[in-house]
């Protein structure tokens, strides 16, 4: 499954980059993620609950940040396993400053699904991925506007 999208933020690239490298912030703004624990440099253990149409599951696995080029880009390597199937994804994230205080974040990558997830979820999954990325961008936007924001 191809993952692709972009969003414009009213913030400089380095600020966004920093936020995305912060485990606490990331755990807060990523939809479904309930736990994000740093296990080493740039590697995290993640636990997420995702429900999409006929398929819902509790995922656990690894998240790794690679090819870091602050503040322009990095690659997110995701390996998440669940009883309903596994997800493996490599997503390149690019931050391009389009103005003094504006940055376009774009992502491009591929997710590979297996098991029940591939068999019955595929059809609805690109829609789900879209929704999730929109939620993520919205949360990131709020976080940028109010960096001190903490969940109630």
């Amino acid at each position: 499954m191809h993952l692709k999208g972009s969003h414009q933020f009213n913030a400089p690239a380095h600020q966004i980059f920093k936020m995305l490298m912060d485990a606490d912030t990331l755990a807060r703004i990523t939809p479904g993620v309930s736990e994000l624990e740093e296990t080493g440099p740039d590697t995290y253990k993640a636990i997420a609950n995702v429900k999409m149409g006929p398929v819902s599951g509790s995922f656990s696995g690894q998240l790794e940040v690679a090819e870091k080029q602050e503040p322009e880009s990095f690659v997110l390597k995701i390996q998440q396993n669940s009883k309903i199937g596994n997800v493996a994804a490599d997503v390149k994230i690019d931050l391009e400053e389009t103005g003094a205080e504006t940055t376009t974040l774009s992502f491009d990558g591929k997710a590979r699904l297996s098991g029940l997830l591939a068999r019955t979820g595929q059809r609805v999954l690109s829609g789900v991925a879209n929704t999730l990325s929109k939620q993520f961008f919205k949360a990131l936007e709020e976080e940028l506007e109010n960096p001190a924001h903490q969940p109630a």
């Binding site: 098991g115 591939a118 068999r119 019955t120 595929q122 059809r123």
Partner: peptide
């Protein structure tokens, strides 16, 4: 089948 040879329409919904 997708490129990983996963059957992607393995139910009556698909």
């Amino acid at each position: 089948y997708d490129e990983d040879a996963q059957l992607i329409n393995g139910s009556y919904m698909d």
